[in-house]
């Protein structure tokens, strides 16, 4: 089956880990992930700048690895992201910010991508806190 996973919560909530665990398990079971969509505080999962203390599970890194391994389409909602300081090089230049912060493998785009994903997927599963 084709899944879209919506993540509303920051990595500081277990809900973000649950989304990751669900995605991994669905892929292991042979399902397709049409899109990961990070929305509201969920965009913090796509930060390239977060540093996890040693000995703690690094969820943002884990997402990046999973996305690279399975070539997943991972989108961070652009309006949510800009507000929370998650910006790519293009937005950094446009708004004259000192640097980009969007993690590798993630793309900034609009809510239309969530509508598209809902149309294209058999199931939409949301994780919030």
């Amino acid at each position: 089956m084709k899944f879209t996973i919506v993540v509303y919560s920051a990595p500081s909530s277990q809900a973000a880990w649950s989304a990751y665990q669900f995605t991994r398990t669905a892929l292991d079971a042979g399902h397709e992930i049409y899109r990961l969509f990070f929305y509201a505080d969920g965009v913090l999962n796509s930060s390239a700048l977060s540093v996890t203390p040693q000995g703690e599970f690094d969820l943002t890194q884990a997402w990046q690895t999973l996305i690279a391994e399975h070539e997943l389409d991972a989108i961070s909602c652009v309006s949510s992201a800009l507000k929370r300081g998650i910006i790519d090089t293009q937005e950094a230049a446009r708004y004259e910010r000192p640097g980009a912060s969007l993690a590798a493998g993630m793309t900034l785009s609009g809510l239309g991508q969530l509508v598209d994903a809902t149309l294209a997927s058999d199931r939409v599963v949301s994780f919030g806190a």
Binding site: Y39, S79, G110, L111, G112, L114, T118, L119
Partner: peptide, 30 residues
């Protein structure tokens, strides 16, 4: 692909204390 689906949005948070209500409105409009 189907180009139209029935989507239901259930808004359960008060406004202003956090961004959930506005985030839901944006999803609805989109």
């Amino acid at each position: 692909l189907p180009n139209r689906k029935m989507l239901t949005f259930i808004s359960r948070r008060a406004p202003y204390g956090n961004g959930a209500a506005k985030a839901m409105l944006d999803m609805v409009l989109s």
